[in-house]
């Protein structure tokens, strides 16, 4: 398996082997400015929670300009991990319903109290009918991430995956490290694509960038 490209987007910076949009500020401001600078027309972005915005925007940077973008496909999985699940939204939800007048908030608020919604947002945007799954780990453990994503390629339909660590502790503190991984043996001098092998060491290096 080969890492074709990666993006690391945090509350204060964006690091990638792909072109990175201009941005200003930190936290929410960074997300909004980078989204605007990337020129994407996707109004739904503004309705997303912070976890989904971070995962969505990192994936947009990862895939910008790639061949055959938006052609419906079933062979690409979206497999994400974090440690805080959807607790950022869960806290908002708790505060909302603590007010007896707010016992029935908008359904759009409740739906984001599930961490896997970000995988659905990415699948909808890119028309991916493949596997989507969300795992929660105590920490960004390269061994678990490497094994679970590698195992996902046992599905005979799956030939590539958007995968990585997308975590959000509050609306201004988040981290999205996403990889585009393909099911092919890494060849150093390959004419097509380049990249690096999908292994624990490379995952750790990119997580720590």
């Amino acid at each position: 398996m080969t890492i074709r490209s990666y993006v690391k987007l945090t509350s204060d910076r964006i690091v990638s082997d792909r072109p990175v949009p201009c941005f200003s500020g930190t936290g929410r401001e960074l997300l909004l400015s980078a989204f605007r600078a990337s020129g994407i027309s996707y109004p739904k972005f503004h309705k997303m929670d912070t976890l989904s915005k971070a995962g969505f925007l990192a994936t947009e940077i990862l895939l910008e300009g790639s061949d055959g973008r938006f052609v419906p496909r079933e062979d690409r999985a979206v497999i994400l991990f974090n440690s805080a699940s959807s607790l950022c939204d869960d806290r908002h939800y708790c505060k909302t319903i603590a007010d007896p007048g707010n016992w029935f908030p908008s359904p759009a608020v409740f739906v984001y109290t599930l961490p896997n919604i970000v995988t659905g947002e990415i699948a909808i945007r890119n028309k991916y009918y493949g596997e989507t799954c969300f795992y929660v780990l105590p920490e960004p453990d390269p061994e678990s991430i490497c094994r679970i994503v590698s195992d996902a390629f046992q599905d005979r339909m799956t030939s590539s995956a958007i995968c990585g660590w997308v975590d959000c502790t509050d609306d201004d503190t988040f981290e999205a490290v996403v990889f585009l991984v393909e099911d092919c043996i890494y060849e150093e001098n390959a004419l097509h694509g380049g990249g690096m092998p999908w292994n624990m060491e490379n995952i750790r290096t990119i997580l720590n960038k």
């Binding site: 440690s83 699940s85 607790l87 896997n116 995988t119 989507t132 929660v136 780990l137 105590p138």
Partner: peptide
Amino acid sequence: TLHASARLIAEHFANPNMPVVVSN
């Protein structure tokens, strides 16, 4: 956190591996 509960369950059985939570 979901992993706190998972860890508690794995530790109850003295399991040495990092437990995985699926929240899909």
